[in-house]
Amino acid sequence: MKLVPISSAGGAGICARLTVPVLAFGGILMAVTQTVVVPLLPDLPRLTGSSPGAVSWLVTATLLAGAVLTPVLGRAGDMYGKRRVLLAALGLLAGALVVLSVWCGQQLRSGQPLVDLRLAAGRRVALPHVAALLAGFAFYANSLVTAQLVQAPVAAGYGLGLSIVATGLCLLPNGVIMLVLSPVSARVSTAYGARVTLAVGTAVMALGYVVRIVDSRHLWVILLGAAVVSMGTTFAYSALPTLILRAVPLAQTASASGVNVLMRTIGQSLCSAAVAAVLVRHTTVLDGVHVPTLPAYQLAFAMAGIIALAACAVALAIPSDPSPDGTERTAGRPGPLQETALEGRS
């Protein structure tokens, strides 16, 4: 078994290593474009004056376009070259970003915007969204990397060579932990506030990745580290909806909660791309097959741990809930929110 250095013979090796990150980034863009409208669905009938049935065609048209164009573009790639078709698709996405920028400007100038961007930019709303993106990144690395690590061949020096069924059983305790700890996280939020719960959860996630970095060769340590990350994920994910619901007006809770879920999904997509880039770049040759090295997995865990700590810092920066007398509360059940706080204005 020998290490494979980064190719220096020419551009071919570099292009080969960039293929997976570029395709993963394209997958992220596709996921975002397909789901970004979902958080607005509950409010679109009211905002557009249309019936719910008419609005549902918006999602249907998007799905139909994806279903029809996927084989068409695949055939175009066979006929005219996959690189050309990929560049054309990325060009269309770049054009969509320009349209999005124009739309955002129009929404900021509108007296009755479809999406209240000013409210979304306030610290009480924007910071939970950022924390959701980072927590989604940190959460997904746990299951994504663990599944690949335990299935790695034993000959690699660190892998366990488990089957797909055994790998699923290794991931099963994580779901059980999240189910059991959900009531506990709710009580913590009630006693100390959702902001503290989010900070504690993301810090525990970072601690779990420290365990993963220290030892990723023994199954019981792998399961322990994954369990610790799952514990932190439970606390973090249970606190995020509470923070959003307490920060926006009642009429916007559905769309704001949907955006928060979308941010978690984007974080998971970013994690998938980042982990793929790390594992592809650090490989060994084993029986003629390229497999990731153990330092590659440890680097992925370190990356996820740093992201979890960043989420913890963002959580601590979220403003505390105001109490009825106007002072800030850091623990216990918050008092009624002032309208100015809900609107994100001083």
Rank of each mutant, 00 (worst) to 15 (best):
S8V: 05
A9C: 00
L18A: 14
P21Y: 02
A24N: 06
L29C: 10
A31N: 07
P39C: 10
L41V: 05
L44F: 02
T48P: 00
S50L: 13
S51G: 14
W57F: 13
G66P: 08
L73G: 03
G74A: 09
G77P: 10
M79L: 14
R83D: 15
V85W: 01
S101E: 15
D116C: 09
A131K: 04
V150F: 06
V150E: 11
V150D: 10
Q151M: 14
A156E: 12
P173Q: 10
P173F: 07
S182E: 10
A186L: 09
G193A: 11
T197Y: 09
R212L: 15
S216I: 01
L223M: 15
L224G: 06
G225C: 04
V228D: 08
L240T: 01
I244S: 07
L245G: 12
R246P: 02
A247V: 03
V248N: 11
P249Q: 12
V259N: 05
V259R: 09
L262F: 14
M263H: 11
V275C: 06
H290G: 06
A304S: 12
I307A: 13
A310Y: 01
A313R: 02
P319W: 06
D321T: 08
P322L: 12
G332F: 03
E339Q: 11
E343Q: 10
